[in-house]
């Protein structure tokens, strides 16, 4: 946080190197948010670039009431949502399969790895089929480590709405896994 503030001050004194450091620090998280909404790498990258340029222009209005990251994700969310809404309704993403979440590899036995792979692909598929807003809520909560309050300020949803949505989304994922487990058991029987 303090490092961010220092970099912002240096940027406003004319140092583009300081802003470059901010971009490098947050580009993956901003890109993940825009990608989750737009589900197209090219468009998501353009939206992420717009996000940083908008943030650069508005640095003077950043009042430090929230974390810089939260303020930045708020710009990313609005930029991506605006792009998403301005899309023609029939347009299909060419690389939707790349927009699924990447899950970190953990050390596990081959059998566990197969099981984890199965769980991952199920969750990835489920997230890929979710509404952009819902998948982004999960991304903000789990990947960008934003609190419910911060997600509320980023998305404009009420805190209780965010809580309810997160609860339902997790339940949906759980039900998908439960259903899959039942199918596996039935096929074995």
């Amino acid at each position: 946080m303090e490092k961010d503030i220092l970099l912002i001050k240096e940027t406003m004194q004319g140092s583009k190197t300081a802003f470059k450091s901010l971009v490098e620090q947050y580009q993956d998280y901003v890109f993940s948010v825009t990608l989750k909404i737009l589900k197209n790498r090219e468009e998501a990258e353009e939206a992420a670039q717009d996000t940083f340029i908008k943030a650069y222009r508005a640095l003077g209005s950043f009042e430090q009431r929230s974390k810089f990251a939260t303020w930045l994700y708020q710009i990313a969310w609005r930029t991506a949502i605006d792009r998403y809404r301005s899309r023609p309704a029939t347009r299909q993403s060419l690389d939707d399969e790349q927009s699924f979440l990447q899950i970190r590899d953990t050390s596990a036995t081959p059998l566990q790895q197969v099981q984890q792979q199965n769980t991952r692909s199920l969750i990835e598929n489920a997230l890929g089929q979710m509404k952009a807003e819902n998948a982004t809520l999960l991304t903000l909560f789990y990947l960008n480590e934003q609190s419910v309050k911060e997600i509320s300020s980023i998305t404009g949803l009420t805190e209780s709405n965010v809580k309810v949505k997160l609860f339902r989304l997790r339940n949906t994922l759980k039900n998908i896994l439960t259903q899959n487990l039942k199918e596996e058991v039935n096929s074995l029987v």
Binding site: Q27, D28, S32, R104, L138, L143
Partner: peptide
């Protein structure tokens, strides 16, 4: 979900 990784541009 907690093990999600950010994607890079």
């Amino acid at each position: 979900l907690a093990g999600m990784e950010a994607q890079s541009p």
